[in-house]
Amino acid sequence: MILKQTVGARLDVTGVTVRFSGVHVLEDVSFSAEPGTVHALIGPNGAGKSTLFNVLSGIYRPMVGSVMIDDREIIGLKPFQVARAGLGRAFQNGSMFGSLTVEENLLLGRHRLTRAGVISSGLGLPSARAEQRDARVKVRETAEFLEIDHLLARTSGDLSYGDAKRVDVARALCTEPRLLLLDEPGAGMHTREKLAMRSTISRIARELGTTILLVEHDMGLVMGISDRITVLDFGTVLITSSPDEVRNDARVIEAYLGHSTARKGIPKPRMNGKQ
């Protein structure tokens, strides 16, 4: 039993600039991710990684710049249109629909791949039931692939942080994305969970062919599975290269070691998943 394979999308980010009340959060950001690869995006807290993800998924609109998924410009599309263009996303902070079960959360991942309308759904017509059955099967397969099938019946609002992150990834995967954005999937996990997440991510890329854009602070995880790495600092790209070159790049070391102590005091922006 294997999930449906996809043709990973190519991502081209060109000259993206975002400003919030006069402060440049992203400045002329450009890089490309090759189809079917794991591309990491790293940088200190506040570098603008989540903001870039918000641009990619259509939540923020940059002042200038272009984002192409394959040959399609997605700047200007609404978030749901971007999702339909094949972009899936797991969020930095718990994004469960807390009153729903895990299974229902994953079924929402299949929303864009299902059709049932108000009438057929409300009347419980055979077409709607069959579609729902199929979706359930797909959801179970995805859950098994990510080894979270034992959680399906749980209320998602009650999950532990680590479990919620894995369900979030599974839900994004249920949309059958060709490009998957993962925002700090290993955050708050202990070593064993992190190892599992690491193998999950590489399996998604290798076995399903999905292109993955990964934001992660754990350098072990990043270096181990990434094909390419883009380093972001203060909203600008320092370098896009292979893990080995990034590891040895002077500017990266400077960015991480040089300021990291000074930056520790800066709190992460408080995120509210319920907004």
Partner: peptide
Amino acid sequence: GRIGRAFTAIRDAEVHAAALG
């Protein structure tokens, strides 16, 4: 069903619902 789940998703976390299409 499908529609009801979409409703709940919008209520619980609109942005996340949109990100799922």
